[in-house]
Design a protein around this nucleic acid. Structure first.
Lengths: 193, 193, 193, 193
DNA sequence: CATGAATGAGTGTTCATTCAT
DNA sequence: GATGAATGAACACTCATTCAT
């Protein structure tokens, strides 16, 4: 009987890691950042406290991993063909995709906003986050410039602010927030002139 | 007959209370909610830990006081004549006032967003906050209804989301956020049809 | 207009002191020793914390004063003519008086038993308490000796233990404890042979 | 497969728990209830403060555990064959056993009396204590009824008060209290008529 | 005489992290 | 790899006591 191959081990490791991250995300989103202790997460995940440190160097490291993984999911719906050029269609697709992601993953976005405001954690992810976001930002500026906007930077900033504002209000009150109506308004707002 | 007169004591208390609130606000905004310990706030304020509890019943009580005081400042710029009726002028005045308040009081608004996402704290202020916000909300709905919007509730929700989104992005990056340009865009967006 | 005479001042002082002791006794008996803070006692007595220290050197000093004052009340019903000789009548009178005192002053006796078990406080009052109790003890031994008991010391100790045991059970459950029946049994128990 | 086996862990836990309870009992009995801080107990037990909470949920929980364990030791000497019926022999056996327990475990009984008078703690153990004591009480009433006493309830109350009074006086002064003589007197007192 | 603002050491409790097994 | 006993620094909060007024 042969021992597990390295590849098998690697696979098990990754799955375990993913499972921990999912549980941690839920616990953090539900209880707030500082009420989500390692103990609690470990217990919820059905593993020992000690094992957590086999997968993540620290609580911060765990959070960073969750954040980055979440963003990687989002990036795929923006400029899907990865040509650095955004069409109007792709922008509107991105809007829909974004809110669908939010609706399907409230805990992650709760945590996203928490982390945005948590200076110590934020300062750690910020470099890695920027590496992910900069190309998006550039692509978006190019798009608005090509649409003939006077001040495409302002336009992008405004767009991002609206998306975050709506996301924030949605997760604060998912039951009542009129997401469909608001989505429509955003589509109108960024319709080609 | 007391050694310090009641008036003297009253003055000392008010000043100290305000001083603690100011320091606490800064410490919380700079370090995040859970890193802002009572010890730290007290040290920063140059007083003993114990004295904090002479002025605030608990850390929660301190936060609530800071929040409510901040909101009281904002409320005066919305429907300034308090007739429950909003004119278009007043709405635009409110927009300007809001962002001016944000620009002048970044720490408070950092803290505001932190608290929004802190489930345990939020649940405490929520009742008092709602008491303040409900009339605004109603006034705003009436305004949009009177402007002939099909779905004034959605409109108000969208408006609030935009305001919060812009505020959030501003406090995340006050140096670079193009507040003036964005403000102009918002004014255009809510111009009378 | 003349200032208050020294005697008047002394009288006021004593009354105030007594009032504080009464309040403190009640607060301690109701809330337990460590839950009875100086703040609480002062507030209940309607005076300032600082003033407490004008009348009592410390919290311990306050407790000692209460205890000793309580004992002084009890001593008067034992060997009432102070001749160092106890008659059978006087003993039975003492029994009745003791339980009457307990029934009329539950808080004091709650505190008495608390203090008995509080090593730090007990070790402070113990010398003063002994000074009060020793003559009683001697008188009692003489009494039982004169009644022809083989071992009068054991008899006194047993008597004291019974008195305290009954007192303790009474204050633990004053509503239901059958004090009258028990009193009768004690009287029978120490009837002249 | 775990590094320490479950049995090993179980053993460690039980021993540690017992060790903490023993130390805590001694510290509380020696220093009084409120002077026995968790810090002090932990230091005396040679472990960290934090570890205390690995074994007991709170200070209260620790106290309850100590109390209940102590009572379980006592209960076995009352109505030893557990038939709910007490013979005269069994009663006298219980008396002897009780005092032997007291003599061998002075700290526990010091603590027992402390707790009786500590309103906050007492109210917590009271339900569990009553569950243990009620059957004893009933058995004792039946016994005295069957012995032809007019008022068996008063008799039981008196008996319990005497036992507690003697116990209290013994632990207050174990060196000098004439336990043997007193024990004899109690046996005589409750001899079959 | 009288006040209460102020202190600081203390409390019970939590928790990220380590490490022997 | 996997466990959970163990640590120690931190936390929110309390309180006897002091002292300027």
């Amino acid at each position: 009987m042969s021992p597990r191959t390295d590849t098998q081990n690697e696979k098990i490791r990754l799955e375990r890691k993913q499972q921990i991250m999912n549980v941690a995300l839920k616990v953090i989103a539900d209880n707030g950042f500082s009420n989500a202790s390692i103990s609690r997460i470990a217990k919820e995940a059905g593993i020992s406290k000690g094992l957590m440190y086999n997968y993540f160097e620290s609580k911060e490291d765990l959070v960073i991993n969750i954040m980055l993984e979440g963003f990687n999911q989002l990036t795929n719906s923006f400029d899907p063909n990865h040509d650095g050029v955004l069409t109007e269609e792709e922008l509107h697709f991105f809007i829909d995709q974004s809110f669908q992601t939010v609706e399907q993953n409230i805990p992650f976005w709760r945590m996203y906003f928490m982390v945005l405001l948590q200076p110590d954690v934020y300062s750690i992810i910020t470099p890695q986050l920027e590496k992910i976001l900069t190309p998006f930002y550039k692509t978006a500026i190019n798009y608005f410039a090509s649409q003939g906007y006077d001040d495409p930077v302002t336009e992008v900033r405004f767009f991002a602010a609206i998306m975050d504002g709506v996301g924030l209000h949605y997760i604060m009150d998912p039951e009542n927030f009129p997401m469909e109506g608001v989505k429509t308004k955003i589509h109108q707002l960024f319709k080609c002139k």
